[in-house]
Amino acid sequence: MLNRREDETVPTEIKLWRIAENGRPKPVDQDKLDLESRLEDWIRDDIGLVNDDLLVIGQQVPTDHTGEIDLLAMDSEANLVILELKRDRTPRDVVAQTLDYASYVQKLGLSEIGEIAANSDFLDGQSLEDAFSEKFGEDLPEFVNQAHRMYIVASSLDSATERIVGYLSETHGVDINVATFAYFNVDDREMVGRSMLLDEVAVQTRSDTRKTSKRRENLTQAELREIASENGVVELWDRAYHGFRPISQGTTRSLSTLSFQIRIIGVGLRSFLSIVPGWSSAEKGLVLRVRDQFISEWFNIPEDEIQGVCGEEVKDFPDVWGGERFLDADRLDRLIKLLRENTPSN
């Protein structure tokens, strides 16, 4: 094994061959990437360069610590993923900075994450919920950011970064890895190849086995109905369930909601409203989380008509998704009638 200085970087070694006119393979020499900042642009345009299972939600994201996160993404389990470019920083600096960002990210809730996504141009005007559903084919979970992941992105790797990241993952189960890229220019055609420092499956396995999961089993429909009963709204619960179930093509449960879904060809099941029994009360009514825009598009009903039936949104719930309303029996019956009359025939 060759010895090298702690700060000496070695380009990612990826072999590439071109098939010559005589049919024989000819090795292609690796070139030096002129600007490592170009990596950020490439990854921004195609996150699959690092991992296909990611949805980018922000770039140069401000933190209340020092600095800005180069790229922030979300995976299919709604966990946040930090992508930090090494640039010309020392191994200690880039690893410390990435871990510092992780200490900030772990505190973010749904409202803060939604604000980050809304302030970026990655979702093309979609809500975080819609972008997540489109990317992963399922609804955004009720509880997000239960864990986080980190990637350091570089065009070359030094022994110190390799040793520190390996130690964090292999000894302490930290979900961190390094993605390095090899650059080729063949007849003025640019190409890149990617290599991971650590095996991704092994990193995930170590992380999963060393952390105590915050996830709990979703409540059953009977348990959610019991909560409605305890809050004095079981009759409204039953009214809502029997009213919305024939309109929907499926239901899904969480720790606090029963959601009604519609199947969209090429996308899958998408929730259009949810019952939230824990926030309901006999005095104010049954809480429904109503996705006005989605219902308007699917059922072809003007949003102001939906809002007129459902009433004003409630803004004082914790970490609100949006669209929550208290509905009494009259408003509930009017909403059921409106959706039934406008349910698409196919």
Rank of each mutant, 00 (worst) to 15 (best):
Y167R: 14
Y167G: 10
Y167C: 11
Y167L: 14
Y167Q: 12
L168R: 02
L168C: 03
L168M: 03
E170M: 14
E170V: 14
E170H: 11
E170Q: 13
E170A: 14
E170R: 13
T171Q: 11
T171V: 13
H172S: 10
G173M: 00
G173N: 06
G173R: 10
V174N: 05
V174G: 03
D175Q: 10
D175Y: 10
I176A: 07
I176L: 04
N177T: 01
N177V: 02
A179C: 13
A179K: 13
T180C: 15
T180W: 05
F181M: 01
A182Y: 01
A182M: 02
A182S: 04
Y183L: 02
Y183N: 04
F184Y: 04
F184Q: 00
N185I: 00
D187K: 12
D188A: 15
D188C: 10
R189F: 11
R189Y: 09
E190W: 03
E190P: 02
E190S: 07
M191E: 08
V192R: 15
V192C: 03
V192N: 07
V192A: 03
G193D: 05
G193K: 06
S195T: 09
S195D: 13
S195P: 08
S195N: 13
M196A: 09
M196G: 05
L197P: 06
L197W: 03
L198F: 02
L198A: 05
D199L: 00
V201N: 11
A202L: 12
A202F: 07
